[in-house]
Each structure stands twice: as structure tokens, then as C-alpha cells.
Amino acid sequence: MINFVWFLDILLSSILLLPVKDERGRYRSFPVATTGLILTNVAIFLLLNLGLQRLIDDVDEFRSIILPMLLLPAAIVQGQGLGALSVITASFMHGGWFHLIGNMFYLFFFGRKLEDVLGLARFIVFYLVCAFVSSVVSVISWTALPLTQGQIPSLGASGAIMGVVGAYLFLYSEQQIKTLVMIGGIIPIPYMTSMPAWVFILYTIVSDLANGWLQQVAESVGFIYSLINSFAHLGGVLAGLTCLYFFLPRELLHYRYRVET
């Protein structure tokens, strides 16, 4: 079983799926919130990594500024640190260019579609709700891990973005998404494949489940398997699929399952 899951995880993590285009080629209005969130993320990344890091030479001092802004599950459970505020700060910070670009690409693709349905203000609230739910799941899961016990801080918008992805699945599971497959995350296969949204999202869920399970198993035998916060990703998808119920207009909700595809 472990071998199979391990193989699956390696296989899935060696492939990066980049959504390029779906059939929903129209928007009601310019996606202000999505664009704003992307710009905020990029600005904060540049500020911290290019601005602040250069201003402060001392690495320890830099860390002491940054660390409270990250999501530290152990600190959350003990009621220390910035608490709920750290959820927001952490979800606007990224560990590197690759992390930032990958996340923003997903947000750009799925965020616009969701913002189109929810509108500006509700979309922002929903995005933050996903960030919070994914953080709660992350906090509970990481503190339950036997080895690290929630002592590893996490950062990134993945949780919130996976919530947006989950909401997209809820709304448009039948959509065909033209996807660019990247081997090893960098080498693109020069053929754009088209896959239904549910397959696309299933890939991310299976990948996170496999990774999360292996993490748990690995820690139970005394080593750390991966630092990817798969639990936050799963929490985000869960939030996207469930919390959207409270944000959708009644008509959309009522007819969602009556519109067969």
C-alpha cells in the first residue's frame, strides 16, 4: 500500500498541470478582486524578499520579523503569536518565485470565473474564508503529527486558492479545461490536452491526499517526508466545496443539480 501511494505521489508530483483555457470565455465585468489579490501577493513578496531582506542584513533579525507572520500550528493551539491575523499574513506570503508564480497562475485562472459569479466583495470574503478553513484543517492536522507536532511554520496562498479551485469544481465540474502538462514542473509537453474540470481537480486532491498520508506515515516512523502543506490544500478544497453554499445566489444553488450536462 505504502509503495503504491509513494509511487502515486512521486508520479503526480512530477507532473504539473497548468490550466490555460476553459469554455467560459466571458466575464460579466473586469475581475477587480482577483487582480487585486494577485497584485497584493506580488507586492508583499517583492517587499519582503527584495525590500526588507536587503534593508536588514542580520538574518536573525529578519527572521524575528517574518516568523510571527507565518502560520505556526503549535502557536495557534497554545493561543500565542498573532493568532487569526497570522492566517491572513501567512496567506499573502510566499517562499520563492516558483511558489508565487504557481499560486498566482491558479488564482488568475479560477479566481476570475468565481468572482464573475460571486461579485467583488463576496469573492474576497469567500477567499478569506477558504484561507481560514484551510488554516484550521492545517493546524489540526500538523499538531496531530507525531514528529513535528505543529512546529513547522507554513505560508502561502495555496489553501485559499484551493478553495477557489474547489468552488470552481462545484460550479463547473463539466467544463473542459485546456491544460498544459509540465514534466517536473518545468518542461512543458508541447501538446495542450483538454480535460474535464473534475479530472483536473481530482488530480490535485489525490496528489494532496497521497502526500498528506505519506507525511503522517513517515512521521510515525521518525522522519519528515515533505514540507508541502497538503492538509491546507485539502482544507481549502473542502472549504471551497462546502462554504460556497452560503455565498451562492438561490437560483444558482437551486438549479445547480438540475442542469444535467
Binding site: 487569526a84 463576496r122 470574503v125 474564508v129 481560514f132 484550521v136 453554499y245 452560503f246 455565498f247
Partner: peptide, 21 residues
């Protein structure tokens, strides 16, 4: 109330996290 619950999720979750989950 359904739509209100959507808005209440955010402060509710923030309060939950501040209370150590």
C-alpha cells in the same frame, strides 16, 4: 440567514483560531 451565515463564517473562524481551535 443562509446568506448571513456566509458572512459570519469569516469572523467566526477568526474567533475560533484565536481561541486555539
Amino acid at each position: 440567514f443562509r446568506r448571513l451565515l456566509g458572512l459570519m463564517l469569516l469572523p467566526g473562524l477568526a474567533a475560533l483560531i484565536n481561541a486555539g481551535v
